[in-house]
Simulated assay, not measured.
Amino acid sequence: MAGTMAGMVGGLLGSGSLRAALAIAGAMLLTGGTLAIDRHLAMSRIKLRVAEARSRGMGLVIEEPEDRPGFVTAVIGALGSVITASGLLSSKTREELEQTLRAGGLMTSHNLEIFIGAKIVLALGLPVAAYALLHHVAIRPFLFFAMVAAAAVGGLMLPNMIVGQRRKTYLKAIERGLADGLDMMVICAEAGLALEATIQRVSIEVVHAHPKLAAEFTTTYNELTMGSDTRSALINLGTRTGLASLKRLGATLVQSIQYGTPLSLALQTLATELRQETLTLFEERAARLPVLLTIPMILFILPCVFLIVAGPIVVQVMKAMKH
């Protein structure tokens, strides 16, 4: 009986149907995890609040938009919820993940669970897909298992890479529009608007040109108007993203409120400093161009110069050797 069962299991393991099933399962897991990261992590509530604020002409949105995730996202989010509720993640690790998502504008009530669930799905799905694809390839067993293990590690690190790239894009978009936002804040402050009204107005006006910056200003305005401490709300403007420029803006606004300095003068000084730093950064990049052009010149230009200069001499030497 035991021999018969072993033979049946061996036959199933060697059959093509099991390999096809593994390939399909791995493809489904990989597709579901990739879609969850690329699509649903990007649907943050901050963007929806800004869109609703534009339609209403207001900077404060009280009602939360309802999230209706798809089936795949719901399953992945449920898996992430199980992991987060089980206590496997330490509080420090959870805070670091939340900070990473928050710095990329992706921190909502479900994105953390989707992020963790996607890591688990990809860490399990990619090795299954790699096993199904490499099963018939003639490679050494050590290399085969090494590639399967590499697929598992890659699936575990892929969400971090995607979120990290989105975080860099998000922060660069904020930095590009911060100087323009500060100039508009100066105009509003000189017009006599209060700090809350200034932040609200700027968040509405720059939403078309710099939506990421508008989202951060909208969040800050919401915190200011919902009874939060003014100092904490302004400090959180830089803490959420980790940008030094936003931290300086929050500190400047806090000092202006604390010591009674003119808000327009402080903002104008900060805007001038940021534009000067941007100009200095461009000058540094321009100064590196000669060094960066050295490698293309060696690879593409110098061989052509040598060919033109030494080519006739080589041809004459070859003719002389034939005679």
Rank of each mutant, 00 (worst) to 15 (best):
L182H: 06
H110G: 05
L292P: 00
G311R: 08
M318D: 11
A53T: 00
M1P: 06
R56S: 01
T108P: 00
G242Q: 06
V317I: 09
A123N: 03
G80Y: 02
M161C: 10
G105Y: 02
T261D: 08
M1L: 10
S86W: 13
L265P: 01
H323Q: 12
L182V: 03
T252I: 09
A150T: 14
P262S: 09
L122N: 02
A27H: 06
F306N: 03
S228P: 01
T294C: 15
S203G: 15
L133A: 12
Q200I: 14
L246G: 02
L292C: 05
G125K: 01
M58I: 00
A150W: 10
T252G: 06
G10N: 15
F71E: 14
K322R: 14
L224K: 02
V207T: 07
K119G: 11
S91V: 09
S86H: 13
V309L: 09
I298L: 15
E98K: 13
S55T: 05
R19L: 14
T252N: 08
M157E: 14
L18R: 03
I120R: 06
Q99C: 05
V309P: 02
G125D: 02
C304S: 11
V72R: 04
A194P: 09
F217M: 10
L193K: 01
L265S: 07
K212P: 05
E216Q: 13
V72F: 14
E95M: 09
V291F: 13
S203P: 03
L35M: 11
R248L: 11
S81F: 05
P141S: 10
G3Y: 10
M1H: 11
K172T: 12
A287G: 04
